[in-house]
C-alpha cells in the first residue's frame, strides 16, 4: 500500500533533480525551471504529509501552506525573469558561465 513515506521519497527525488539542475544547468531559464521543480517537490511533500495523523487528529493544513508556496514561487519567477531580461543584454543565450567577472 502506498503511504506518505512513498510520497516523501518521491518528493526527495524531485528535490534532488531540482538541485542537480540548479548546479549543472548553464542556461538561466533552465535554472529557474529547476527552482520551480524544487518548489513543486515542497508542495508534493506538504500535501502528502498533511494526511498524516497527529496526536489522534488529522491535520489538513498542508494544502493551505502549498497555496502560500505557489504564491512565493510566482513572485520569485517574476523577479527571476526580470533579471533574465537584464542579463539578455550582455549574453544572448543567458548562460550563467558568461558572468564570472566578480571573483577573488
Amino acid at each position: 500500500m502506498i503511504n506518505s513515506d512513498h510520497a516523501t521519497f518521491f518528493s526527495l527525488i524531485l528535490f534532488g533533480i531540482g538541485i542537480l539542475g540548479l548546479l549543472t544547468r548553464k542556461n538561466l531559464i533552465m535554472i529557474l525551471i529547476s527552482v520551480e521543480i524544487m518548489l513543486n517537490a515542497v508542495n508534493l511533500n506538504l500535501i502528502a504529509l498533511s494526511r498524516r495523523d497527529i496526536q489522534g487528529m488529522t491535520a489538513v493544513g498542508g494544502e493551505a501552506i502549498a497555496l502560500f508556496v505557489i504564491l512565493l514561487a510566482a513572485c520569485e519567477a517574476a523577479v527571476g525573469l526580470g533579471i533574465l531580461i537584464g542579463l539578455k543584454k550582455y549574453s544572448s543565450d543567458v548562460s550563467v558561465d558568461d558572468f564570472d567577472e566578480l571573483r577573488d
Partner: peptide, 30 residues
C-alpha cells in the same frame, strides 16, 4: 547584473531549502 543574478539564485535556493524544511517540520509536528 551578474551580482544580482548570483544574489537571486542563492536566495532562490534558500527559499526552496526553507520551504522544503517546513514541509518536514509540518509533517512531524502538524
Amino acid at each position: 547584473y551578474e551580482a544580482t543574478m548570483k544574489y537571486f539564485l542563492m536566495g532562490a535556493l534558500a527559499t526552496a531549502l526553507m520551504l522544503y524544511g517546513i514541509s518536514f517540520i509540518f509533517g512531524e509536528t502538524g
